[in-house]
């Protein structure tokens, strides 16, 4: 298993320096990503999902600073700390090793260049100058995402629909055979059918090309479908990490449970929907102890005083909570009511 480790994120913290103080957008996040694996990051808006993934390609805005941690990336036996790459090596690293498809990428293509030029641009920036080869590869990838390759390559971005653009971007994302592809809400702003099509395409591509995925989404159903591992983030911290089944059926953190309860599920009635009470905390001046305690139904005095460790509960299933047993109990109550 160790041999297949692609990205090992250890204890990463990131702050944004703003006029009011420091926004602690990511705190001590750690996880491992293996070859061909897909990890889903879920969590409310503002929980730091984009921030942490931007740090892997050093594309954080200038106000941001990585304060602690390492991101070790391994390719062909060689391991480097991404944060220590210099500007030129970082440039080469981007897209070739780690491609990121941004949130809401409707505007992802330069409007004045034909799609094929943008494929050539990308290839050329990484020293691949044979236009014919690039063209053929692009044809193949576009076919993989089920587009009419010739037409797309000869088009300008505005001539493509939103879904087509998104799929083209996926194809462009794997042009250079990256090991890691980060997808930041790749399907928001698309209709359900297109979302489906894109997820299918993505799975097929992953199966063929064997890259690893970090999948960021609000949509738990999509996350469940795409990923093998799921991580829940809350207020810049990772609060639970496990396999899809563990997270969805054996969740250990009250926040994860809250998230699951706030989406409709076939096996549960509509009236069971509840949202998590309260609002996400202020990240400049976060609550003491467990950051979730002001919103938590199971909180006790201890929760406000001491921060729970992000520790292994069983096997690979990790959680940061003082009372996971309470969650298990509550969860079972829920299931019983449903059945």
């Amino acid at each position: 298993m160790e041999d297949n480790l692609v990205l090992s994120v250890q204890d990463v913290s990131i702050i944004y320096q703003v006029a009011r103080g420091n926004v602690k957008a990511t705190n001590n996040v750690s996880f491992d990503l293996y070859k061909g694996e897909a990890l889903a990051l879920i969590g409310e808006s503002g929980s730091g999902k984009t921030t942490v993934s931007l740090s892997f390609i050093k594309m954080l805005p200038s106000a941001a600073k990585v304060t602690t941690g390492k991101a070790l990336y391994t390719r062909e036996g060689k391991t480097v700390n991404i944060f220590e790459l210099n500007e030129e090596r970082m440039r080469a690293f981007r897209w070739q090793d780690c491609a990121m498809v941004f949130q809401g990428a409707q505007n992802a293509f330069n409007p004045v260049l034909k799609i094929k030029e943008q494929f050539f641009d990308t290839a050329k920036a990484h020293g691949w100058r044979k236009r014919k080869e690039v063209y053929d590869r692009a044809l193949e990838l576009l076919k993989l995402v089920r587009l009419d390759p010739e037409r797309v390559l000869e088009s300008y971005p505005h001539e493509l629909s939103g879904g087509m653009k998104q799929r083209t971007l996926l194809a462009l994302g794997v042009l250079l055979d990256p090991q890691v592809v980060i997808l930041d809400e790749p399907t928001t702003a698309l209709d359900i059918l297109t979302q489906r099509a894109i997820i299918d395409v993505l799975k097929e591509m992953q199966g063929r090309l064997g890259f690893s995925i970090i999948f960021i989404s609000h949509d738990l159903a999509l996350a469940a479908e795409m990923a093998s591992q799921v991580a829940t983030m809350y207020a810049g911290e990772m609060v639970e990490l496990g396999t899809v089944d563990e997270i969805f059926y054996e969740s250990l953190h009250p926040y994860t449970l809250g998230l699951l309860q706030s989406v409709p599920r076939l096996e549960r009635g509509q009236d069971e929907l509840t949202s998590i009470k309260g609002n996400p905390p202020d990240l400049i001046d976060p609550p003491s102890g467990c950051k979730f305690h002001p919103r938590c139904d199971f909180a006790e005095a201890k929760c406000a005083e001491k921060k729970p460790e992000f520790a292994t509960y069983e096997k690979e299933h990790k959680v940061a909570c003082w009372f996971p047993e309470k969650v298990i109990e509550a969860r079972q109550g829920l299931w019983e009511k449903a059945s």
Partner: peptide, 15 residues
């Protein structure tokens, strides 16, 4: 976005 993504694509600053 396309400027950001161009950076993420590793294009050179000049381009």
């Amino acid at each position: 976005d396309y400027v950001n993504i161009a950076r993420a694509r590793g294009l050179s600053q000049g381009r």
